[in-house]
């Protein structure tokens, strides 16, 4: 048993490494998609001989492709992803400043989504197909047709423009006080949370409905336990696996969903930085951020998968 688990994990680790290697090759090759002279395209007006020399050394553009990759990946593994030729900020530094914002957005929005979706699903699953269930199910279906950029704009329109309850843009760091920090992330988080609510509600609801037909629930009922007690103590836990799996799978997509929200609310997270870099043709910044973001995405997915395997041994044998 233990050895099969170990085998499974090592297989998956090899896959992970292979995918990370491919990601690095593809991000490395991006620079070669640039039309014309890459140093001119990357450096733009900064295309002085010394900067050009530095860039050529960094990218190794004057050598053969595998050698270029070798030089580049060597730099990357030493934490040197290059620097912006506009602000001189290193890519590593820009990412370490921006990443906590994405993390906060994801954590806060997911907490919100769970707090809303779980009670909704519990109430709806209690009497499937009755009024409450129909309303909740229909409205979550509608939410699936509302892209984040639409939700976010509507929220700004109502809560920032019309009733001035929250700031429309800007970010206050945690060091500026918890209250002002939360105020600045509340609208963005709600925008992100809404889609998750719909998904989590639907996953949990359908699992709950089938759990509630199990014999042990009938047993609990015949013992005279109250419905809320049965729902919370007997049915919720065995029904929450899909919910957890769904949450795990959507972490990766939330990360890119946060891009839209960051740009609209001007929160300087990875997405905001990336879009700014794309618009100012700051190619090394784009390349570095893409590499880190894509690797983070596959690693997160890997960890989530691993955790689910630990939680539910059946997955291993699927």
């Amino acid at each position: 048993m233990r050895s099969s688990m170990g085998r499974y994990i090592s297989m998956r680790l090899v896959q992970l490494l292979a995918i990370i290697f491919l990601i690095s090759v593809l991000t490395f090759l991006l620079v070669h998609l640039l039309p014309g002279n890459p140093t001119l395209a990357i450096l733009g007006p900064n295309d002085t001989p010394s900067a050009q020399h530095e860039l050529l050394r960094q990218l190794g553009l004057n050598r053969s492709l595998p050698l270029q990759y070798w030089t580049w990946i060597g730099n990357v593994l030493h934490g040197n992803l290059g620097a912006s030729f506009l602000t001189k900020q290193t890519v590593t530094n820009a990412i370490s400043v921006a990443a906590p914002i994405d993390l906060e957005l994801i954590v806060v929005s997911q907490l919100m989504a769970f707090v809303v979706a779980i009670p909704l699903a519990l109430v709806a699953a209690r009497r499937p197909n009755r009024l409450f269930d129909r309303l909740a199910t229909t409205s979550t279906f509608g939410m699936l047709s509302l892209p984040t950029f639409v939700v976010a704009v509507l929220l700004v329109l109502v809560f920032a423009v019309q009733i001035h309850a929250f700031p429309a843009t800007g970010f206050n760091r945690l060091s500026q006080g918890l209250g002002s920090n939360l105020r600045s992330v509340i609208l963005p988080s709600v925008s992100l949370a809404l889609g998750s609510v719909a998904v989590y509600y639907r996953l949990l609801r359908s699992d709950l409905i089938s759990t509630l037909q199990e014999d042990f629930v009938t047993m609990a009922r015949s013992k005279g336990l109250s419905t809320p007690y049965i729902l919370l103590r007997h049915a919720l836990r065995p029904s929450s696996f899909s919910l957890l799996a769904g949450a795990g799978i959507s972490i990766g997509s939330l990360f890119t969903g946060a891009f839209v929200v960051e740009v609209l609310f001007q929160l300087p997270g990875i997405g905001y930085q990336l879009v700014t870099a794309i618009n100012s043709r700051d190619y090394l910044m784009v390349q570095g951020m893409a590499l880190v973001a894509a690797v983070a995405y596959v690693v997160i997915n890997f960890v989530v998968d691993f955790l689910l395997t630990v939680l539910d041994p059946r997955v291993r044998h699927a």
Binding site: L144, S145, G195, S196, V199, I249, S253, L254, A258, V260
Partner: peptide, 9 residues
């Protein structure tokens, strides 16, 4: 869909 976190299920 990664794009906008609207996860269609």
């Amino acid at each position: 869909d990664a794009g906008s976190e609207a996860v269609l299920e």
